[in-house]
């Protein structure tokens, strides 16, 4: 169970480009939940995931995962519990290293790395089958540098690597946004398979409402660094793309109202 409680994060505080990216986010994700995170650009989706992953310290609040307090834990220690796939296909793999070496790195996610051989014959043999199941013709190219692969192939591998050791939490940040539609569909299909097979607790940021409708059992909608809507199991089941669009419109309307209210106040007081 992931518990995010009253989390605040401001970037560049006190400077001209101060951004209040998270403004009191609280949410509890149950084990086995597959949550789609929606929200306009800059609403704080990535920041929320990065706060959980520990990319930066948060200003206020608490993050716990299965009773382990993550709030002060450095990023590399949280990796024991958390698997991640990034939006940028270049972020999740080491380009100059071979597919096999990359997998070997992932096969020890969060574990001690010692002086035993990273690529023993026995270990290598275990890599082939899961890679074959990606259906991307990569099983024969384990010794090729990952940098030579397409974005879709790299994202598929990153997904495989993030879940090589079953994580207590899987964080996917628009991991198909940089791919062409056909490849994106393949990677989404793969995501579904992997998440469902092990019933992984998953937070998936997406900009595709269709994906949010089709996948998972819960939708979080972020706005201005807060959770605007939280659609759980029963609500989520019946939701359609149009309903989501309506919610977005509502958010926008509220925003405009805020804007006009703000202007009114300005007129009166300044």
């Amino acid at each position: 169970m992931l518990k995010i409680e009253g989390v605040y994060k401001t970037f560049n505080p006190g400077s001209a480009n101060e951004v209040r990216a998270l403004r009191g986010v609280s949410v509890t994700i149950n084990p086995g939940d597959f949550v789609c995170v929606l929200g306009t650009n800059g609403s704080g989706k990535s920041t929320m995931l990065n706060a959980v992953a520990g990319a930066f310290p948060i200003d206020r609040g608490q993050i716990t995962l299965h009773n382990t307090d993550l709030t002060k834990m450095p990023e590399h220690k949280r990796a024991r519990y958390i698997g991640r796939v990034f939006q940028n296909p270049f972020s999740g793999t080491a380009p100059d290293m071979s597919i096999a070496e990359n997998i070997a790195l992932a096969a020890r996610r969060g574990m001690k790395r010692g002086l035993s051989s990273a690529l023993s014959v026995k270990k290598r043999a275990q890599f082939t089958e899961p890679v074959r199941q990606l259906n991307m013709d990569l099983e024969g190219r384990l010794d090729n540098p990952i940098g030579k692969l397409s974005g879709g192939q790299r994202q598929a591998l990153t997904l495989l690597m993030a879940t090589w050791i079953k994580p207590q939490l899987l964080l996917l940040d628009e991991h198909t946004a940089a791919l062409d539609p056909k490849t994106a569909a393949r990677v989404i299909e793969l995501t579904k398979q992997i998440v469902e097979k092990d019933r992984l607790t998953t937070l998936m940021v997406t900009h595709s409402m269709q994906q949010a409708v089709n996948l998972g059992n819960r939708i979080l909608m972020l706005h201005n660094g807060k959770i605007a809507y939280d659609l759980k199991e029963s609500d989520k089941k019946h939701i359609r793309v149009n309903d989501l669009l309506a919610l977005f419109d509502e958010i926008r309307r509220k925003d405009q109202m805020d804007e006009s209210v703000a202007q009114m106040i300005k007129k009166q007081y300044i």
Binding site: H76, A79, S91, D96, R108
Partner: peptide, 23 residues
């Protein structure tokens, strides 16, 4: 070519990636 050594090379190649894998 050891687990530690490969991770160190990865740290030079893509620090974000290997940090996400716990290094």
């Amino acid at each position: 070519k050891t687990n530690l050594g490969v991770a160190m090379r990865a740290a030079g190649n893509n620090a974000q990636m290997i940090r996400a894998l716990g290094a």
